[in-house]
Design a protein around this nucleic acid. Structure first.
Lengths: 207, 207
DNA sequence: CGCGAAATACCCATAACTGGGGATGTGACG
DNA sequence: CGTCACATCCCCAGTTATGGGTATTTCGCG
């Protein structure tokens, strides 16, 4: 059975090019084309396509907002961003909204079919630069760890419970020690993390 | 000029296979092979290869720890994980440690050369399943918004300052209102978020 | 053995927070 | 005009947290 694809894209040229490529492939069929957010939200839920190709810059709103709404209505539909924006802000917001792929428009159109198959296989097709930005966002800044890592094992244990929102008394019970002990640990934690309250400590711990 | 590659891998068969594939490519050259973490940390810094292919399970420790140390010594070297582990825990820890690629061992060896070129171009080669897991980690859970979004604008303002670690008094000054007002807002915030302390509120706010 | 770090526990004063009450003014909405 | 949500302020009693001590035990290191 063919993969059903819907397109949300305002540029007529790109739109037709995409449509043609998809129609030419026997494994895919294009079931709908929308030129703006409003039409997309009205028509696509009924179509329930397997894949949506989504532009970001649309005449009546953002494709990211549109992605969030459609993903909510169609959780099993895979949404692939197809845009000129390659700044981290747009990328992360699109992924938060529920996109599973992110291709830049400079990507050769032929690669789109490849990407559609990839996204249906459970992959996440991305342009190389996008992938690198995503990966980089995981990088742990070596600053914070330096602070947290000079805590003793016991102090880390206390801090973990603190970061779950427990009171000192609850932490004491969990560790089967006195409240006074927890207070002592907290004092040391505050000193080492250079903070003045449990809230600040938790914020620092959670980065 | 050829791309220099070092391999950290304990399995002799895989190791030789990788080495051969790399040697056969005119654009790459294999400059070192290590069978464990200790050797890798001793030999590779002097080799300063362009790319390191890193296993995770090594006889004398974790390739993730090894990745963190090598990346610190050689910031411009690209490190590609090559492993059987596909659980999110390992993936994210490897990326945090500084890896720029993550291939599973079931990946056909021929794809390795492709991946090496990709990683040098500034990309981030990943197996499809890995890419999807990475992307999914960005998904915003719709739970948070439900709770937080029923706060009034002013309450959100207070919560934001709370999440920066400020005391009630500091929040009051920043908003040019009395401490009592901030306390009132806090009471309402606690009710709406179903929490009992500022720390819990901040945790909930930061997800 | 002596030293220091870590974990444990206690005391205490001050400060901050929590949760209950009530009170006022404003602005939106029907 | 009345109602309601919101923001503002106040009081107060009880709890919790903060920061300054001190002290004991255990454990590893030289």
């Amino acid at each position: 059975m063919a993969i059903t694809v819907a397109i949300v894209e305002d540029n007529a040229g790109i739109c037709e090019e995409l449509e043609e490529i998809i129609r030419e492939d026997p494994g895919c069929s294009c079931v709908g084309v929308c030129r703006n957010v409003q039409t997309a939200l009205r028509k696509i839920p009924a179509l329930a396509p397997d894949v949506i190709i989504m532009d970001i810059q649309l005449p009546d709103g953002s494709g990211i907002e549109c992605t969030a709404r459609l993903k909510h209505l169609l959780p099993r539909t895979q949404i692939m961003m197809f845009t000129i924006y390659e700044d981290s802000e747009q990328i992360f917001r699109a992924l938060e909204a529920g996109a599973s792929g992110y291709l830049l428009k400079r990507t050769p159109p032929e690669a789109m079919l490849q990407a559609i198959r990839e996204i249906m296989r459970g992959g996440a097709p991305m342009t190389g630069e996008v992938a690198r930005k995503v990966i980089h966002s995981f990088r742990r800044t070596p600053t914070q760890s330096s602070d947290v890592e000079q805590l003793t094992p016991r102090e880390v244990e206390v801090l973990e419970l603190l970061a779950k929102g427990h009171l000192s008394k609850e932490i004491a019970d969990r560790l089967t020690v006195g409240v006074e002990t927890v207070n002592s640990h907290l004092k040391h934690i505050y000193e080492k993390l250079h903070v003045r309250s449990r809230t600040e400590a938790v914020i620092k711990y959670m980065k």
